[in-house]
């Protein structure tokens, strides 16, 4: 019996502490499967998963693909490069076409906020949001939580400092929601140009200095800064950004001695994070990748096995 009252995973918003714990517990089990010699199960045998990626993301797509395959599902990848999307077909037209092929789950990555919610209204299957614009990236937040929980044993009352480009980050939004739901203390550390309006009311304490923001932190979560935002538009230069906000061994000293260093990848070494830290003993960046597959297995299994069970809500919106 699967007790998960949602048809889609569109965001962390709408999930309860119980829902999140359920997924994390499931993911813990999935970690074991991935570490076995025989990694393939037949849980989702006969079911079809389509990965619909309008934004290129090799890692996330591979992670979802592997998760589906390990559960025994048939996985099909569709990315923008070889689809008709470039010929002006809209998201909805593409979705309707795919819907007619009777998939059981659609995994969507799209550059526009709300794309997953829109898709969920139009298709008959479950939708998993693999990142929609600057809105949410729920599986990333879940894999981050799993990584933290396995290292620290809990999520409540730990201090997590999210550093960098919060403004453009769907990872940050999902993490702020999830960590608050689980009782963690969230901080954001960034220059004001990289913080969204109203950030102080979003459930995060705001800092503009790494030293203050990292003080006593249990987790330091770095965010990627897009290349086009580095030179003059949001911050003056890479050099200045790294000087004030790049994580190096010196700045990391402000955090707790056993603080975890995390990054959703791909990293810009020397921009938001120094190699000495990224590859250092406190880094759990590689574990995050491993947890990514496990979390996606848990999500897919939960959504698909609960599909024929009621009662079920119309999905987690936003």
């Amino acid at each position: 019996m699967v007790f998960f009252p949602h048809r889609h995973l569109l965001g962390i918003k709408g999930l309860t502490e119980h829902d999140i714990t359920y997924l994390l517990d499931k993911a813990d089990e999935a970690v074991q499967i991935s570490r076995q010699r025989e990694k393939k199960t037949s849980t989702l045998r006969g079911l079809t998963q389509i990965n619909l990626f309008f934004e290129a993301s090799t890692r996330t797509q591979a992670s979802f693909e592997l998760a589906g395959k390990r559960l025994g599902a048939d996985v099909m990848n569709m990315s923008v490069g070889n689809s008709s999307v470039k010929k002006g077909e809209t998201l909805i037209d593409t979705a309707m076409t795919l819907n007619a092929m009777h998939p059981d789950v659609l995994v969507l990555r799209h550059s526009s906020a709300g794309a997953a919610a829109l898709l969920a209204q139009k298709v008959a299957c479950s939708v998993v949001n693999a990142g929609d614009g600057q809105h949410e990236h729920p599986t990333q937040a879940l894999l981050d939580a799993l990584t933290i929980r396995r290292a620290k044993g809990k999520l409540s009352r730990i201090i997590v400092a999210i550093c960098g480009d919060v403004l453009h980050s769907r990872v940050a939004r999902s993490n702020i929601l999830l960590l608050n739901a689980m009782g963690a203390r969230v901080r954001v550390v960034a220059p004001s140009t990289l913080l969204p309006s109203g950030i102080a009311q979003m459930g995060a304490e705001v800092f503009h200095s790494m030293e203050e923001g990292l003080k006593d932190a249990d987790v330091v979560m770095m965010l990627r800064l897009q290349r086009e935002r580095m030179s003059g538009s949001f911050v003056p230069s890479v050099r200045e950004y790294f000087h004030f906000y790049g994580l190096d061994a010196e700045k990391l000293k402000a955090a707790k001695e056993d603080a975890l260093v995390m990054h959703p990848g791909p990293m810009n070494r020397g921009v938001e994070i120094a190699s000495e830290v990224a590859d250092g003993p406190q880094s759990v960046i590689e574990q995050q990748v491993e947890m990514g597959v496990a979390v996606r297995m848990a999500v897919m299994e939960t959504l698909l096995l609960s599909q024929n069970q009621g009662p079920r809500s119309e999905g987690v919106h936003a």
Binding site: S197, G198, I199
Partner: peptide, 15 residues
């Protein structure tokens, strides 16, 4: 409209 609601939705705001 720029503000908290736009920030949560991940949409660019108009002040």
């Amino acid at each position: 409209n720029e503000g908290l609601f736009a920030s949560w939705l991940g949409l660019a705001g108009v002040p």
